[in-house]
Structure formats: C-alpha cells, structure tokens
C-alpha cells in the first residue's frame, strides 16, 4: 500500500486529500485511481502534473516500496 496525497485542484476533483492505495508502481497507482474515478484519472494525466515519491520528484514509472508516500502535484503557482 502507498499513501497517496493530492494537492490543489486534484483534491477538489477527487473529493479527498489523502488515501491508502494499493499499487506496486506509480503507473499502477494511476491506473487504479483512474479506474475508480475517470475524472481524477484525467486530472492526474493533465499536462504539468508532477509526481513525488517520498518527497522527491520522479519521472516515468518507478517501483514503490511498501508505505511509500506518493504525491500528485498540479502546476505550482507560487505564493
């Protein structure tokens, strides 16, 4: 299980901010979230959405250790 965190408009689309989700890779998490909620799947795939695993930005489809924290970050707006 990974701890998934959603920020900005992504949490508005999903209606939640933090959840445990099963998935062995970032891609598997995305697929599971998209299967449960097509709107969220589309929002996660939007241009500019970055992924951080344990607070470091990742690209591609890295494997996830059990208990990993996976954050989906929409374009950062600055303060």
């Amino acid at each position: 299980m990974a701890k998934v965190l959603l920020f900005g408009r992504l949490s508005d689309v999903a209606g939640w901010r933090e959840r445990e989700v099963a998935g062995a890779t970032v891609g598997a998490l995305r697929a599971r979230l998209a299967a449960e909620d097509a709107d969220l799947g589309e929002a996660l795939a939007a241009p500019g959405v970055q992924v951080a695993v344990d607070q470091a930005i990742v690209r591609g489809d890295p494997a996830l250790a059990s208990g990993a924290e996976v954050a989906f970050l929409p374009p950062m707006s600055g303060g």
């Binding site: 920020f7 900005g8 408009r9 970050l73 929409p74 950062m76 707006s77 600055g78 303060g79």
Partner: peptide, 10 residues
C-alpha cells in the same frame, strides 16, 4: 522564485 515556482497551490 517564491511568486512563480515555489510549491504552493493558491
């Protein structure tokens, strides 16, 4: 930097 790129969502 803070106004344009810092990790905040507004």
């Amino acid at each position: 930097y803070l106004k344009s790129k810092a990790p905040f969502w507004k």
